[in-house]
Nucleic acid binder design. Structure first.
Length: 174
DNA sequence: GGAGTGATGACA
DNA sequence: GTCATCACTCCA
């Protein structure tokens, strides 16, 4: 009988195209050093210079500069003065892209997720790794692609109809 | 349906 | 320096 392998995803997993990484992230485990491991079930892509819903749509700023790095970095930002959003940078250097982790099997909602894992600004610009105390593992679970629903992103009406309606949200059916 | 909350970015 | 905005959550 084969033992279950928990494989820590390496940086090159995140250096691929954002939408591909989104689909592959569903069913992976977000693990923190305090022992919590949550199965990722909902993510959103923010991809490229032209994406009007992305923080990077108007160029590089001190807040979003980490989005321009190569994949595997953590981008944390505060929203509505209360909630930290956890994003994983994707793609190649100088191409701004990231994935918002919106929910897990055990915890739904991006703000609740970070509160549950005690994630805040201190994780910003760090790389996913055991040293950082936050990483993502492949635990051998691969959901059927037809169980991954693609929908428009949440809360991005400000981006205008074209970008608000892009099917950039990936949700695993429960 | 509506309020809370404060860092950030745009503009002057 | 000002000020509007916001990749959300909770309570009614």
């Amino acid at each position: 009988m084969m033992a279950t392998m928990n494989k820590l995803l390496s940086k090159n997993f995140f250096e691929r195209p954002t939408l591909t990484v989104c689909e592959d992230l569903i069913g992976k485990y977000l693990v923190s050093k305090n022992g919590l491991a949550l199965m990722i079930t909902e993510v959103e892509a923010y991809d490229g210079f032209d994406d009007k819903a992305s923080h990077a749509s108007s160029g590089k700023t001190s807040r979003n500069e980490i989005m321009f790095e190569s994949g595997g970095y953590i981008y944390m930002y505060l929203i509505y003065g209360m909630y930290w959003m956890l994003n994983i940078v994707t793609g190649q250097k100088d191409y701004p892209a990231a994935i918002l982790i919106r929910g897990a099997k055990e915890v739904s909602g991006p703000g609740r997720l970070t509160k549950h894992l005690n994630l805040d600004k201190s994780f910003n610009k760090k790389i996913l790794s055991k040293e950082t105390r936050l990483w993502i593992e492949d635990r051998g679970f691969y959901p059927a692609k037809k169980l991954i629903r693609k929908t428009p992103r949440i809360g991005v009406a400000y981006a205008g109809p074209i970008w608000a309606n892009k099917p950039y949200r990936f949700v695993m059916q429960s």
